[in-house]
């Protein structure tokens, strides 16, 4: 198991893979991972670290792959009573904000 998100991203880049970084920047209520938790995503879909207990990683990876392809960095919000287009929420009832950006 490796928690070294930034080190892993750096080794992906050394292999010529593009990558993105997702960071929990705010939480309300019950949330599985604290502010500052990070998930690294490679262009081939590989992941390191986490931003939740597995509830929202799928959606974050989907966004991250778009951002790797050139979409701008994005602030995502996940929560139970979310009116946005997200299908995913947190079963625990909390809300998290996740910032997703490319590391070119």
């Amino acid at each position: 198991m490796s928690d070294d998100v930034l080190g892993t991203i750096q080794s992906w880049r050394a292999e010529g893979k593009r990558a993105a970084l997702a960071t929990v920047i705010n939480t309300w209520g019950s949330s599985p991972r604290p502010v500052g938790s990070q998930l690294g995503i490679a262009e081939d879909g590989a992941m390191v670290g986490s931003v939740s207990g597995g509830c929202i990683e799928g959606a974050v990876v989907t966004e991250a792959l778009d951002i790797i392809e050139g979409a701008p960095a994005k602030l995502l919000t996940f929560g139970v009573s979310n009116e946005q287009a997200w299908d995913v929420g947190l079963a625990c009832g909390g809300t998290v904000e996740v910032y997703v950006e490319a590391i070119p």
Binding site: L6, G7, Q10, R13, I103, P104
Partner: peptide, 13 residues
């Protein structure tokens, strides 16, 4: 995060 920031952060760690 720019590559320069990533590298500086890894060096600090």
């Amino acid at each position: 995060m720019t590559p320069a920031v990533l590298e500086a952060l890894l060096a600090a760690q």
